[in-house]
Structure formats: structure tokens, C-alpha cells
């Protein structure tokens, strides 16, 4: 098992070597990048907004219940909600959700291209399929995932505020002022660094599993599932490592 792990890791780095070969005909890559931004980025906005809004609301309810104390101002609840969303919920949970949505899309798309000989068609034309197909996906994820996470942060905070208001759990004016108290911009930087790393993991790990598919439709499905599991493990692992390093 250890041997297979290191064999897979080696194959992953060799694959990255192919992906990061100097691209030729940048205009074609740019066109492909725009298609990927639409496919992987814009199509995820609604999902991220919906989840973040309700995630913020749930965090507020749980925090308000646990800090239900007349000696504690509602602004402290706001601080706790803000830190939870900015530090962990937005970057990690949104990235895990994107690993499921975007990652499985990348793995199954590339896997299908492999089994239907579309990659062979590119090779016959003299085009490096790893670079042409994967590099624009990495660029799209690196550009758009941080934007989605920032959306997630903002809507999480809005969700918390709305839940507090609708359920009458907090004094909204005091609560809102809490969002701006003792704010450390470094936390946002930490969050975005995590998001960049997670975006790279999502794009490359899923592409690796899709690119290496052999067989038919069943293997494409299996590769997609395996890629989501591998991405989730890797994201959780790097979440710990980066938190230990940066915070």
C-alpha cells in the first residue's frame, strides 16, 4: 500500500511536469481559460451563495445559544461568528464543496475525453493534452475559487445577521457593530492563502485522476469518486499544515 501511494505520488508529479510545460499558442489557452471560468467558476456562484447564507445563519444560532449570557454583549457573538466564517467555514467548507462539484466535473470530463480517444486526437495533432486541457482549469480555479470564497465570507456574515434579526436572537445594531470590532486583516490573508492552495489541489488532483483513466464509463465514474475522496483528504491535511504554519 505504501509502495502504491508513493508510485501514485510520483505519477502525480510527472503529470504536473507535463502540465506545466511551456504552453505554445497562448491565444488558444486563453480561449480555453475563458470557457473554464464559465464552466467551473460562474456556474458555482449560486451554490456557494446558498450554502454560505445558511451556514452563516446556523453558526449564528449555535453561537448565540452557547453564549446566552446577560453579561456578554451581542457584539461578542458577532466576533465569534465572523472569526468562524472567515477563518474556517468559508475557505475550508466552500473548498470541500467545490472539490465535490468542480473536482468531480474535471475528473469525469477528462476521463471521458481519455476513453473516447479525444486526448489521442490532440496528441496526433501535436498538441500536449495535459497542458492544453489542464492548465486552463488550474488557472480558472486559482482565479475564481478565491472570489467564491470571498462571496462565501460576505454571505455567511449576511446570513448570520439575517438569522439574528429574523429569529430575534440578538440586538442587531450591537451585533452589526461587532463585525467591525478587533478585526485582523491577516485572518483574511490566511484564509485566501488556504483557498489558493486548496484551489490548486482541487484542479490538479481531480485532473490527475481523470487524465489517468483507463477503460470505459465505469472507470470514469470510479475515478471521479476516487478524486473527490483524495481531494477531501488532501484539503483537510493541508488545512492543518497551513494553519500551523501561518496562524
Amino acid at each position: 500500500m505504501i509502495y502504491r501511494f508513493f508510485e501514485g505520488l510520483g505519477a502525480y508529479f510527472l503529470f504536473l511536469g507535463d502540465v506545466f510545460r511551456r504552453p505554445e499558442h497562448l491565444r488558444e489557452y486563453y480561449r480555453s481559460f475563458l470557457r473554464e471560468v464559465d464552466l467551473l467558476g460562474f456556474s458555482s456562484i449560486a451554490l456557494v451563495c446558498f450554502i454560505s447564507l445558511f451556514m452563516g445563519a446556523v453558526v449564528l444560532i449555535q453561537t448565540a445559544m452557547n453564549l446566552d449570557n446577560p453579561f456578554l454583549a451581542d457584539s461578542y457573538i458577532a466576533i465569534a461568528v465572523r472569526e468562524a466564517i472567515v477563518l474556517e467555514f468559508a475557505p475550508t467548507i466552500v473548498s470541500l464543496i467545490l472539490a465535490g462539484k468542480v473536482g468531480s466535473n474535471i475528473a469525469s470530463t477528462l476521463g471521458t475525453m481519455r476513453v473516447t480517444e479525444q486526448m489521442d486526437a490532440l496528441r496526433v495533432m501535436g498538441i500536449n493534452p495535459a497542458s492544453y486541457l489542464v492548465l486552463p482549469k488550474i488557472a480558472a480555479c486559482l482565479l475564481f475559487n478565491p472570489i467564491l470564497v470571498i462571496f462565501g465570507m460576505l454571505l455567511g456574515l449576511v446570513g448570520g445577521y439575517l438569522a439574528g434579526d429574523v429569529l430575534n436572537l440578538v440586538n442587531t445594531e450591537v451585533y452589526l457593530s461587532g463585525y467591525f470590532m478587533e478585526f485582523f486583516p491577516h485572518y483574511v490573508t490566511y484564509s485566501l492563502i488556504k483557498t489558493f492552495v486548496f484551489a490548486f489541489i482541487i484542479a490538479t488532483v481531480s485532473a490527475f485522476f481523470g487524465y489517468k483513466v483507463e477503460g470505459g464509463a465505469v472507470e470514469v465514474g470510479k475515478a471521479s469518486t476516487k478524486s473527490v475522496v483524495a481531494m477531501s483528504f488532501t484539503i483537510i491535511l493541508f488545512n492543518y499544515i497551513l494553519t500551523d504554519m501561518i496562524l
Binding site: 505554445e24 499558442h25 491565444r27 488558444e28 470557457r35 471521458t112 475525453m113 473516447t116 480517444e117 479525444q118 489521442d120 486526437a121 496526433v124 495533432m125 501535436g126 498538441i127
Partner: peptide
């Protein structure tokens, strides 16, 4: 090369499929 299953790129239109080698 003409592949057994055609191997046309699903995300590109017919015109874009044929034009891809020219673009490169």
C-alpha cells in the same frame, strides 16, 4: 486521424472542432 468513435471535442462546435488544428 479519424478515430473509431470520431473523437470530436464535446465542448466545441463543429466549426471549432475543425478549426482547432488551424488555430494551433
Amino acid at each position: 486521424m479519424v478515430f473509431q468513435g470520431s473523437a470530436l471535442f464535446n465542448s466545441l462546435s463543429i466549426e471549432e472542432n475543425v478549426g482547432l488544428p488551424l488555430n494551433f
